[in-house]
Computed example of a mutant assay.
Amino acid sequence: MAERLLVVVPTYNERVNLPLVVPAILHQDPRFEVLVVDDNSPDGTGQLADELAASTPRVHVLHRPAKSGLGKAYLAGFRWALERSYDLIFEMDADFSHDPRFLGDFVRAANDADVVIGSRYRTGVNVINWPISRLLLSIGANEYARWITGLPLADSTGGFKCFRREVLQSIDFDKVRSNGYSFQIEMSFRAWKKGYRLVEIPIVFTDRVEGQSKMNKRIVREAIWMVWWLRLQSLIGRL
């Protein structure tokens, strides 16, 4: 039986990007389906997602009542996917910073891995249109996370990922604390500590052209202390 593939795409004010990125995802492989997780976007993204779902059976929509963080959006999408027995569950941004053309590489890599991470730094620096300050922050954050946690990844903060369903089933979502970009570190760390195989594949990350970045100081602060919390929880066996 063919594997069932679901790409979870969280959205908040992505009305311009959504009608472009969804067809681009579906075009990569007839097995791909898309779950849009919308946080009650004031620009009407959720309504547009409903229209896409009404016209395309491979598109689904999960509405949340308010914006409450990237991590919670993904966890809601993961629960939805597990309830419906998808085999490979992907994380992907709606703004084309994650190019859908790489999705096939994830599927192939998942033949020999449990978690596949699209890495901006696996083969040098593959980032386009970021100011040097943002690039240095990202590189520094990854070095910091690797130093504190021991997580053997060049890019632990990236959000272009693929999980086998068994990995997500093994993680107690109620224990996941991160909600910003440190969510990516935490999910990979939990999978790694459970003995799952993590593999990085090179991608090219292009900063969004339309819409606004969700990065803010609160997200950065969360990432700074979260890696220490993860290390402590691991040491005392409470992950």
Rank of each mutant, 00 (worst) to 15 (best):
Met1Cys: 00
Met1Gln: 03
Glu3His: 04
Arg4Pro: 01
Leu5Gly: 03
Leu5Gln: 02
Val7Gly: 03
Val8Trp: 00
Val8Tyr: 00
Val9Ile: 15
Val9Cys: 04
Thr11Glu: 01
Tyr12Asp: 10
Tyr12Asn: 14
Tyr12Arg: 14
Glu14Phe: 03
Arg15Asn: 07
Val16His: 09
Val16Gln: 10
Asn17His: 10
Val21Leu: 06
Pro23Gln: 08
Leu26Ile: 08
Phe32Arg: 05
Glu33Lys: 06
Leu35Glu: 11
Leu35Gly: 09
Val36Leu: 08
Asn40Tyr: 15
Asn40Leu: 14
Asp43Trp: 12
Asp43Tyr: 14
Thr45Met: 07
Thr45His: 09
Gly46Thr: 14
Leu48Met: 14
Glu51Pro: 02
Ala54Gln: 15
Ser55Lys: 15
Ser55Asp: 12
Arg58Met: 03
Arg58His: 11
His60Ile: 05
His63Pro: 03
His63Ala: 14
Arg64Met: 15
Ala66Trp: 11
Ser68Gly: 12
Ser68Leu: 10
Gly71Met: 03
Ala73Ile: 04
Ala73Cys: 07
Tyr74Val: 01
Tyr74Cys: 00
Trp80Asp: 06
Asp87His: 09
Phe90Gln: 01
Glu91Arg: 11
Glu91Thr: 12
Asp93His: 11
Ala94Gly: 05
Asp99Val: 01
Arg101Phe: 00
Phe102His: 08
Phe102Glu: 01
Leu103Arg: 00
Asp105Thr: 02
Asp105Asn: 04
Asp105Tyr: 01
Asp112Ala: 06
Asp114Arg: 04
Val116Thr: 07
Gly118Trp: 04
Arg120Gln: 03
Arg122Gln: 13
Val125His: 01
Asn126Ser: 14
Asn129Phe: 10
Trp130Asp: 12
Ser133Tyr: 10
Ser133His: 09
Ser133Phe: 10
Leu135Arg: 12
Leu135Cys: 08
Leu136Tyr: 10
Leu136Phe: 09
Leu137Ile: 04
Ser138Gln: 07
Ile139Cys: 03
Ile139Val: 15
Gly140Asp: 10
Asn142Cys: 11
Tyr144Ala: 01
Trp147Met: 08
Thr149Ile: 06
Thr149Ser: 13
Gly150Tyr: 00
Ser156His: 04
Ser156Phe: 06
Thr157Tyr: 10
Thr157Asp: 06
Gly158Ala: 10
Cys162Pro: 02
Phe163Arg: 04
Phe163Val: 03
Glu166His: 12
Leu168Trp: 06
Gln169Tyr: 02
Asp172Trp: 04
Asp174Pro: 02
Lys175Met: 11
Ser178Leu: 09
Ser182Ile: 02
Phe183Cys: 04
Glu186Ser: 09
Met187Lys: 03
Phe189Arg: 05
Arg190Ile: 07
Lys194Trp: 01
Arg197Ala: 12
Val199Ala: 06
Glu200Gly: 03
Glu200Trp: 00
Pro202Asp: 09
Ile203Tyr: 02
Val204Tyr: 05
Thr206Arg: 13
Thr206Val: 09
Asp207Glu: 12
Arg208Thr: 02
Glu210Arg: 14
Met215Tyr: 14
Met215Ile: 15
Ile219Gly: 02
Ala223Trp: 09
Ile224Ser: 02
Trp225Pro: 01
Val227Trp: 09
Arg231Ser: 07
Leu232Ala: 11
Ser234Trp: 15
Leu235His: 04
Ile236Thr: 13
Leu239Arg: 09
Leu239Asp: 11
